[in-house]
């Protein structure tokens, strides 16, 4: 057990970096929560965890797909990042279509007077009694950045867990019988999902409901969540590495 920990210290460091990236990435995603579902706050109308998980798990799938053909880490990370960015971008485009043509509101931010990217005035278009609505350009760009970081973090965790398993002699690709599958891939994937959820919930408590993106004043709180995630992920990495190292013995 101790040998497994010291032998895989580099992978544990990478898992921790991945967890920290996921935690940071959540702050970029424009989350509106329940108010946004009623077009009363800027952002996508669901919770942080659902959005981060949706994008991050897509990134995990696309990273895993890339691992079919190569074990080149930058390529796998890029694949994970692009998968998550596509997922979050599609979510935001469809959300914007619904807000603009369905609800009938102008995408506008209540946190800044002018959009930092397009320089368009925002405050004139915010409906009374709301905290903005829809997804202005800056939130969209921020969301895509968040998706990319989350995808990199998730695929880094997954890749590291697979490498830990391979260091104890398990196969990365192996038999794919219809129902039994590959134990290493399954355990690494579910651990990556577990670490992803832990690191998506911690920053969502830091944000406290809604955030518009990197221009939101709440974004400055990210160091707190990142420090918390760092400590929590180190614990998770120890647990995950030991469990996967034990897989080699069965």
């Amino acid at each position: 057990m101790i040998d497994a920990l010291f032998g895989n210290i580099i992978w544990m460091a990478l898992i921790t970096i991945g967890g920290v990236l996921i935690s940071w990435s959540v702050h970029f995603v424009p989350v509106g929560g329940a108010p946004a579902a009623m077009a009363q706050a800027t952002g996508i109308g669901t919770g942080t965890v659902q959005l981060a998980a949706g994008a991050g798990l897509t990134g995990l799938v696309s990273a895993g797909f890339m691992m079919n053909v190569t074990d080149n880490l930058p390529l796998i990370l890029a694949s994970g990042a692009v998968g998550a960015m596509i997922m979050i971008a599609v979510t935001m485009i469809v959300g914007t279509l619904v807000y603009v043509y369905g609800v009938g509101v102008v995408p506008s931010s209540a946190k800044v007077k002018v959009d930092p990217i397009t320089k368009y005035r925002q405050d004139l278009y915010v409906s009374q009694g709301t905290e903005g609505h829809g997804l202005p350009t800056v939130s969209f760009v921020s969301g895509v950045i968040g998706g990319g970081l989350g995808g990199i973090g998730g695929s880094l965790v997954y890749y590291s867990l697979i490498e830990v398993g391979m260091s104890v002699g398990l196969e990365r690709a192996g038999i794919t019988n219809a129902v039994t599958g590959n134990p290493l891939v399954a355990v690494a994937a579910i651990f990556a999902i577990g670490i992803f959820f832990v690191n998506a919930v911690i920053p969502s408590y830091n944000i406290g409901g809604t955030i518009e993106g990197f221009h939101d004043p709440k974004f400055k709180k990210w160091p707190k969540a990142v420090v918390s995630s760092l400590i929590a992920t180190i614990l998770c990495a120890i647990v995950a590495v030991v469990a996967i190292a034990q897989l080699g013995g069965i």
Binding site: G47, V49, V198, Y205
Partner: peptide, 20 residues
């Protein structure tokens, strides 16, 4: 400050690591 589902996902995220 955020939805109740987040805490359930956190529970199972921690649980899956700890149980295996």
């Amino acid at each position: 400050g955020t939805g109740v589902p987040s805490i359930g996902m956190l529970a199972l995220g921690m649980g899956i690591l700890a149980s295996l």
